[in-house]
C-alpha cells in the first residue's frame, strides 16, 4: 500500500514511522534507539519536484540532498541551501538523504544514540547525562535543564535564514504550511517532542521565498575535519545590500541549539547599518545573546559569533571561502 493510501485510511498511529532515504531512521532502529511498530515507505508518495519561480522555491520532501544541491536554480537563487547540503554528510548519504528526512534528523548526542545511557529524549524522565558529561558538541542556546542536545542538520539552518515554510499533509488529508520558525519545539521539560508534527503528518514540500537576500546567501560551517562531520557551529546569512547599506538580513545558527537558531536581534541590528566589519562583528556578538555553556562547549559561543561574522563578510565580499573548512 502506498503511503498516502495508508494515511487516508487513517491507519498510521503513534507507533508508525515514515521512511524516506532511511539514512538516519535505519541507524536509530539498528541501535535500538527507536522501535517503531510500523514503518511506512514514502517512496510511492509523489513527493518529488524542484520548482523555482521568481516568487519562491518549492522542494519536494523526497528530493535528495544531492539533487537539490546540484540544481542550477537553487545554486543561483538560494546558494546557501546548496552550500549547506554540499557541506553535509558524504556523497553516498546525500544521494539517499531527503529534504524531509534532513529536517527530522535526530540529534547526534552520543548519549541519545547509545541505549546503555539514560536520556530524557529517548526515555523521558530517565535523566540527562550530557549536562554533567561529555558535552563538547552540545547546545549553548535554547537548551533546558532536561536536555542540551543540538539539532544536527545543516540544510534547515539555511532555510531558517531565508524564512522558509514547511508544507504538511495531515493523516486525515488537510494540508497546511507552517513557518520553519514554528515547526521545531524547544526541549523545555519534554525533550522527546521535537516538532509540531502529529502522528501521521507527512512533510510534502519545503517552500522558500525568493529574494535578493536569498541570492546573496552564504552558509559557513565549522567542523572537526575537512568533510563528513557535523557542524560544531555554523551560520547561514542572507543579506541584501544596496550602496553599502544593509536593507535586509536573515541570520541563523546551526550546531548550537536544539533547532536551527534564528538570530533575530542580530538581524535587526544590521538593518540600515553599513556593511562593514564593525557591523558584522556586532551582529556576531548579538547572535549568541543568552548563550549558556554546559562545560566543554564554552568555546562554541565565540565560534558561533565568528561564524556569523565571517559568513556576513563572505556575503558582502565574496571570496568563495565557504566550504573550505
Amino acid at each position: 500500500m502506498h503511503a498516502f493510501q495508508l494515511i487516508a485510511a487513517g491507519t498510521p498511529g503513534a507507533g508508525t514511522t515514515f521512511i524516506a532515504g532511511g539514512t538516519d531512521l535505519l541507524q536509530l532502529m539498528k541501535n535500538n534507539v527507536i522501535a517503531p511498530d510500523q514503518v511506512v515507505d514514502l517512496a510511492g508518495a509523489h513527493l518529488r519536484g524542484i520548482t523555482a519561480t521568481s516568487i519562491e522555491l518549492r522542494l519536494g520532501a523526497l528530493e535528495t540532498m544531492a539533487d537539490v544541491a546540484a540544481h542550477p536554480e537553487v545554486r543561483r537563487g538560494w546558494p546557501a541551501i546548496s552550500q549547506a547540503l554540499l557541506l553535509s554528510a558524504s556523497p553516498q548519504i546525500r544521494n539517499m538523504g531527503t529534504m524531509g528526512g534532513n529536517l527530522l534528523q535526530r540529534t547526534r548526542c552520543v548519549y541519545f544514540r547509545d541505549t546503555a545511557f539514560a536520556c530524557n529524549k529517548r526515555h523521558p524522565g530517565s535523566g540527562c547525562p550530557a549536562i554533567a558529561g561529555e558535552n563538547r558538541e552540545h547546545a549553548i542556546l535554547g537548551a533546558s535543564d532536561s536536555c542540551i542536545a543540538t539539532h544536527p542538520s545543516d540544510f534547515p539552518v539555511a532555510l531558517m535564514a531565508m524564512g522558509a515554510g514547511v508544507a504538511i499533509t495531515a493523516a486525515g488529508g488537510g494540508t497546511r504550511v507552517v513557518p520553519l520558525a514554528d515547526f521545531y519545539r524547544l526541549p523545555g521539560d519534554t525533550p522527546e517532542i521535537e516538532t509540531i508534527l502529529q502522528p501521521g503528518d507527512v512533510i510534502t514540500q519545503i517552500v522558500v521565498p525568493a529574494s535578493e537576500a536569498a541570492k546573496r546567501s552564504v552558509y559557513m560551517k565549522v567542523r572537526d575535519r575537512s568533510s563528513f562531520a557535523y557542524a560544531l557551529a555554523s551560520a547561514a546569512v542572507a543579506i541584501e545590500i544596496r550602496d553599502n547599506r544593509i536593507l535586509h538580513a536573515g541570520i541563523a545558527l546551526g550546531g548550537v541549539a536544539p533547532m536551527p537558531w534564528r538570530a533575530a536581534k542580530a538581524e535587526q541590528a544590521l538593518i540600515g547599518a553599513t556593511a562593514d566589519a564593525a557591523a558584522f562583528e556586532h551582529a556576531g556578538r548579538l547572535a549568541t545573546e543568552g548563550a549558556r555553556a554546559a562545560g566543554m562547549n564554552a568555546y562554541k559561543i565565540a565560534l558561533a559569533q565568528r561564524a556569523v561574522t565571517r559568513a556576513l563578510m563572505e556575503a558582502a565580499h565574496p571570496t568563495a571561502e565557504t566550504g573550505v573548512l
Partner: peptide
Amino acid sequence: RTDRASGRFANA
C-alpha cells in the same frame, strides 16, 4: 572519550 559518571566510552 569516556563518560566520567559511568566509565563508558561515549563516542563508540
